[in-house]
Write a protein that binds this DNA or RNA. Structure first.
Length: 567
RNA sequence: GCCUCAGUAGCUCAGUGGAUAGAGCACUUCUCUCCUAAAGAAGGUGUCGUAGGUUCGAUUCCUAUCUGGGGCACCA
């Protein structure tokens, strides 16, 4: 019996009671409210206190008032039916009307087999099935390496996408490349000067990486100086393209090593480009479309979008007085592109330093005719800082993703960045991420997984085989019911993390699961000791061991963290 | 000034209206002739920033307020 099945039973039972009462009321000529209880309403919780049973429901308290009964009386009627369910050992009514349910051991133990048989699919649900979601994150300018400021969104965004997919959504991870505009020009001038050995422009990008890029450019264009002597503009342009492509390639490479995958790198330039047959650029078309919706006006020589209609604190300029589009204009065009590609919800993952964007992005959605409640989500994350960080080799005072990866490793970094809610400030302590003990949760969880693998290996050698027996009624030890209960919760944890876009719930769950596993390991042996013969208990425990390993593996995968078989 | 996030144990932080508010660290003491002791067991700690409100019930929701972080461009 899974919590989900239990929820369905509870909902059905309560709906029956409600229907029965309505019929009774109608025969007396009284009108009764129609109430439909869903499985989600009835979803039982794992009580903190073991004396409160395996599962607890507050259903009776939640609905008593609307039905017109007192909670304990309603709980009585519900439990009378719950007692009849196959697999329920006993029920109790406690406090103001809690319904506490205890499953029989066999019913609870069945989870072990279910997990093993479903394998990597255990935990996948269809709660977000049919949703086509666009998830944009990182989107750092391709004018330098990724640094600490980008790592949190990279880790978080990739994990959110994995969690959404596990819940059945179709997701596109997108990186918006700001490869048009003045930052690119400034970038080009910086690299150009370095390549020609000229003095850096006043506003040049700092950092040694500019010099390294200049070297790469010279390798590709050995006669750059010669070209520059003839046509300086052409040489600058060639430098810009070469440096840009090189930098973008390095960013992609860093992200792949961070186990972060994008489905689309979207170039801002494509928004400015006119069609082959002279069609308007997407950005020019965007202003027309917004105008049709009636949200565009002109003032002070500029073209504006009335974003205040949708809650923005001020209207935004689309086309400047000098005829050049603003960054906001490109954002709007990109948004429309996403809409045209069929995405319902568009999620933006931004740092707190961009929180002023919420209003204008939401307004774009509204001006485009979308539902600003459901078609756009802006997730704002607080910034991260790092204690005890070594300074970057290349950039001087900025910590680069590459340096962090080399220093701390992808797993530790991914895990720690995904372990906290995005809206809570995060401070990483470098030495802690490197430690291999209890105070480093990523190792604690990975160690638990490695242990399950060690047990499986040893079981094989000792001749304990899963195929020989599975008798879930034997899993009666206190640590076994705890572990089984935790395994049963996993699908609901994933579904919740997906609905709330909060992958940290997976990490916290895994830490609890690892703790339950370690405790179980300490008191329940899979492999017989000494002369003790192999029993069905050992074989059944092997199922449980393998189930625990499977769930840890599944959960770590959602965080983009590996599950090593040995540590 | 306006917007936004946070304030929970000595420290770092979980906790989408439920029962006695939790975890790790730190501190003390135990447990390997035994599948990985990188682990486990035991020991105590709270004005959930403050004050009101909503209700059967509030750390959770609402209002006000205090403190701290971030943000309020015809920059990108």
């Amino acid at each position: 019996m899974t919590p989900q099945e239990l929820a369905e039973h509870l909902a059905r039972i309560l709906n029956d009671i409600i229907a029965e009462r309505r019929r009774a009321a109608e025969t007396e000529g009284v009108e009764a409210e129609a109430i439909l209880v869903t499985a989600a309403d009835a979803s039982p919780e794992r009580p903190k206190n073991r004396e409160h049973g395996d599962w607890a429901s507050n259903l009776a308290m939640k609905f008593a008032k609307r039905i017109g009964m007192n909670p304990r009386e309603l709980a009585q009627q519900i439990t009378a039916k719950v007692d009849e369910i196959d697999g329920v050992a006993k029920t109790e009514i406690a406090g103001p009307g809690f319904i506490n349910i205890t499953l029989d051991a066999a019913s609870a133990g069945e989870t072990a087999r279910r997990v093993v048989e479903q394998g990597e699919n255990y935990g996948r649900t269809d709660v977000l099935a049919g949703q086509k979601i666009n998830l944009e994150f990182v989107s750092a300018n391709p004018t330098g390496p990724l640094h600490l400021g980008h790592t949190r969104w990279a880790a978080l965004g990739d994990s959110i996408s994995r969690v959404l997919r596990a819940a059945g959504a179709e997701v596109s991870n997108e990186y918006y490349i700001n490869d048009a505009g003045s930052q690119m020009n400034k970038f080009a001038r910086s690299v150009f000067a370095a390549a020609l050995g000229e003095e850096a422009p006043e506003d040049a990008y700092p950092g040694e990486y500019i010099g390294a890029l200049a070297q790469k450019v010279l390798e590709q264009i050995p006669n750059l100086a010669e070209i520059a002597a003839n046509d300086r503009e052409a040489a600058l342009e060639m430098t810009q393209e070469a440096a840009y492509q090189q930098q973008l390639a390095e960013i992609k490479d860093s992200l792949e090593r961070f186990n972060v995958h994008f489905d689309l790198y979207f170039s801002e330039r494509t928004l400015h480009a006119e069609g082959a047959n002279g069609e308007k650029s997407p950005i020019a078309a965007a202003v027309d479309r917004l105008r049709e919706q009636g949200h565009v006006f002109e003032a002070d020589d500029a073209i504006w979008v009335r974003t205040t209609d949708f809650g923005d604190d001020k209207d935004r300029v689309f086309t400047r007085g000098n005829g050049i589009y603003t960054y906001f204009a490109a954002d709007a065009a990109y948004y429309l592109d996403k809409k045209d590609r069929g995405f319902g919800e568009k999620i933006y993952l931004l740092g707190a330093d961009h929180h002023g964007y919420i209003g204008r992005l939401t307004a774009i959605a509204g001006a485009a005719g979308d539902n600003i409640e459901t078609d756009i989500t802006v997730l704002i994350g607080q910034l991260v800082n790092l204690n005890g960080a070594r300074l970057s080799k290349r950039a001087g005072n900025i910590v680069e993703l590459d340096d962090l990866l080399e220093w701390l490793g992808s797993d530790a970094l991914r895990y720690w960045l995904a372990r906290y809610p995005a809206d809570s400030p995060l401070s990483l302590e470098g030495e802690k991420l490197r430690s291999r003990t209890n105070d480093n949760p990523v190792f604690y969880v990975q160690y638990a997984h490695a242990r399950t693998c060690a047990v499986a290996r040893n079981a094989e050698v000792a001749g304990v085989r899963r195929d020989d027996a599975f008798d879930p009624a034997l899993l009666t030890h206190e640590t076994e019911t705890e572990l089984l209960g935790k395994l049963q919760q996993y699908p609901a944890i994933v579904a919740g993390a997906a609905e709330l876009r909060e992958p940290h719930r997976i990490a916290r769950y895994l830490e609890e699961l690892a703790a339950d596993f370690h405790r179980w390991y300490d008191s329940c042996r899979v492999i017989p000791q000494g002369e003790e013969p192999i029993s069905d208990l050992h074989r059944t425990r092997l199922w449980l061991n393998d189930a625990a390993g499977q769930v840890i593996r599944n959960g770590l995968d959602l965080l983009g963290v590996t599950a090593p078989e040995r540590l």
